[in-house]
């Protein structure tokens, strides 16, 4: 289980991004879907959140291939985040 301090840190890193697009996507995901992830998926998400926005965005738009199937799974979920 992730501690509340760790979750708070993750929250800061998901909602104080370089680009608004990523605040909305990662912040929205964290709020609504993160708690449903398996432990392995959670680790993959935290790794994605550690990436810079201009590395992450091409993964989401499919311009760049994901590194492994677990990452691809989480990226797929991110694509489904509806902002509105």
């Amino acid at each position: 289980m992730i501690s509340s301090a760790e979750l708070n840190r993750l929250r800061w890193r998901c909602t104080r991004r370089a680009m608004l697009e990523m605040d909305l996507l990662l912040g929205g995901f964290l709020e609504r879907q993160f708690h449903d992830l398996t432990p392995a998926q959670a680790v993959a998400f935290i790794q994605l959140a550690d990436m810079e926005d201009l590395e992450l965005w091409p993964l989401i738009t499919g311009k760049r291939e994901c590194e492994n199937s677990l990452q691809a799974e989480v990226v797929n979920m991110l694509r489904d985040v509806r902002v509105k």
């Binding site: 104080r16 991004r17 370089a18 810079e52």
Partner: peptide, 12 residues
């Protein structure tokens, strides 16, 4: 900085 330098908004 509130964030890592290369995560500043200038990136946008």
């Amino acid at each position: 900085s509130k964030v890592f330098p290369t995560r500043s908004h200038t990136v946008a």
